[in-house]
């Protein structure tokens, strides 16, 4: 039997996107925390939610399973755990660009201490201005906050730093 590389599995998983941000793959979102094989053909994919109450987690888990099956892996386990705790610094550079192109401000990089100073003045994804204000730290999904740009006069959303 041909040896399956974990990297190959990671490439397959590229087609699984965040259902709420369909331009962002789970790989780039940073929620796939491990891919493992036991030597007998069983594949384990570890993932962790962005927010513990994320309602999309079962959907993403099922999609991972479908991709594995489509590529001929029938023995697999998608394990959701908090062993690695997701934070927004785990979004890849490519993911950050995808967010911006989608019209969502990428989360500011932080030292894992998020305070009002970090979230108050997001960079507008439309015009790049920092002359913005946060309207509310909560938005249409758990992972987004709502902001307003005083330069281009657009409301926009930011993927929250966490």
């Amino acid at each position: 039997m041909e040896v399956l590389e974990n990297e190959t599995i990671r490439v397959w998983l590229e087609e699984v996107k965040d259902p709420e941000i369909p331009v962002l793959s789970l790989n780039d979102l940073g929620v796939i925390t491990g891919i493992d094989q036991d030597g007998e053909g069983k594949v384990t994919v570890d993932m962790t939610p962005t927010f513990a109450g994320c309602p999309a987690i079962d959907h993403m888990k099922n999609e991972i399973g479908e991709v594995l099956e489509k590529n001929g892996v029938s023995d697999y386990h998608v394990r959701v755990s908090f062993d690695t705790q997701w934070n927004s610094n785990m979004i890849s550079e490519r993911g950050r660009k995808a967010l911006k192109d989608f019209g969502l401000a990428p989360p500011p990089k932080h030292n894992l201490i998020v305070d009002l100073d970090i979230i108050e003045h997001a960079t507008c994804p439309h015009c790049g201005s920092k002359n913005t204000e946060m309207k509310t730290p909560f938005g249409p999904t758990l992972c987004r906050s709502i902001h307003y740009c005083h330069d281009c006069l657009n409301a926009f959303e930011q993927f929250k730093p966490l």
Partner: peptide, 18 residues
């Protein structure tokens, strides 16, 4: 904004409970 805030916190909390 507050409607959204309390709704979001509701979703967080029920998720945390789970």
């Amino acid at each position: 904004e507050e409607d959204i805030a309390f709704s979001s916190m509701a979703q967080d909390k029920v998720g945390h409970a789970q």
